[in-house]
Design a protein around this nucleic acid. Sequence first.
RNA 1: GGGUCGAUAGCUCAAUCGGUAGAGCAGUUGACUUUUAAUCAAUUGGUUCAGGGUUCGAGUCCCUGUCGGCCUACCA
Length: 545
Amino acid sequence: MRPQSWTDMSEGCFMPEEARCRAWSEAQLWNGSVVLHLRRHDPFFTVTDSMSDETDISHDQHAVRRQKLEELRAAGSDPFRANVKPTHFSAEAIAAHVEGEDNAITVTVAGRIVTRRDMGKSQFVKILDQEGIIQLYVKKDVIGEEVYPIFKKLDLGDFIGVTGTLFKTRTGEITVRAESYTLVTKALRPLPEKFHGLTDPDQRFRQRYLDLIVNKESRDRLITRSKIVSHIRRFLEDRNFLEVETPVLQGVAGGAAARPFDTHHNALGADFVLRISLELYLKRMLVGGFDRVFEIGRNFRNEGISRRHNPEFTMLEVYEAYGDYRTMMEMVQGMLRTLCDDVLGTSKITHAASGEEIDFAADWREVPYKDLIREKTGDAGWFDLSKEDKTAKAKELGCKVEADWEEFEITNEIFSKLIEPNLIQPTFVTHLPKELCPLAKLNLDDPSVLDVFELIIGGMEIAPAYSEQNDPDVQRAMFEAQAGGEQQNVDQDFLTALEHGMPPAGGMGIGIDRLCILLTGAESIRDVILYPQLRPEATSGKAES
RNA sequence: GGGUCGAUAGCUCAAUCGGUAGAGCAGUUGACUUUUAAUCAAUUGGUUCAGGGUUCGAGUCCCUGUCGGCCUACCA
């Protein structure tokens, strides 16, 4: 509040009224125009005016609302001690109206006031609840002579409950004719602008609640995300997959190559890391006799933040005993197609970045990794080239190549920079080089590649899947090669589990956030995560002032 | 982490060559009993992100910092 910020100011900054007048006057002398700038709306500037100015709070919306709250409390009604029992959500109430039968059905709806059109002795008000917006028509001679002036004092942002009958307005909007109302929460701060909403990305993410109130796209996008997750859960449960929860705090961060977050447990006196994948603990479930398991959970990777990366993100991982990467291929195709039908109501979406239409119902291309590389480089013998020749060719194609890279890294740079971004339609890229993943089975015919696929849609990797490695000795060798001699990074307990026997299995992961980017047409991962990670604010002032 | 662009009223945005910050919405007051970004009249509201510098004079130019966008790097 204002007086608070004044006390925060240093003595030197505080300027008494008379001194301020003097400063003003001096300022006017510089440009020669005197009276008009002194006080725009009051040429007869006097001491009494300056005093009344300090009690005028009409410019301070927070103060105005606090005063209204105090007036309500003084009159014996405290909005923070009131409640209502809604009978309908907004959408239900609208659906309940029977065409041609106005004022036949009585409902109680509740929500936040988001718009108001005041016409003197009646007004239209719209309230927002989880299901959307419903309009209220508040008429002085319906709601009551005494109540109406109090209703008019409500502010945008207040929560109210309203009971009344449903009718259709002249312009065709189903509306509640309010017979009574209850203020159930006073909003002490104003809402952002009704038409343009909130645009500052910083504020949208830090104060997501405001974004959700005023920006319908944000609201719809996050509802869609919820439906996507719900659909996936149902899809898997219908196929006998069991949802389980595995530890976030782990001794060794396995299942992916990423820097973890470090943390510490006080009572155990032990250091832990936050998980970077779900993989190794879900596979232990296969060892434990659960044939079909999945988890939808948060992973944490201590890396840079970008349009496609948030430090914490949600993964689905699915494991199916007696399956392989080919059964996973069928499953993910079925999952995404039904997802489009059920959640989006269409098999076609527009890829936001390219404008190209993606059709999930059409046949999905399947192509080996090596074929794509040969195609892109125009060199059928690419994989037989020397490292020097690969380097030269890659640079020719516009890739940067670091001196200490292995050959597969040069090749993969071509894939990730030149090929993947251009795979817009759903594409299964199969049989990746064995160096790219230590957890999958080698292909029987070509042991330089893996029995895996990566599903690419819209230029993004959406789902990798493997025929899971279950040979404990091969797995140990792969881990040790990857750890590069750092034994503490090898999950020994997992290898012991494999020695007890893990059935052959197909496994798959889906980055839920990236899937949501794709399906909602979002520009950034921050748009599909409710509270994306931001740098903590240095000053605590602004939000609470 | 590096590069680059940005931060002005509660919100959305203006401000010419460096000349002393203005509009819409919201708020306040008034009119209007079926409105749709309702309309009409009047009106309040500013530490121009913070701190320094140049200048008679800085929202504007320079430096430093904070936070954010985009690109990039680490990473699937």
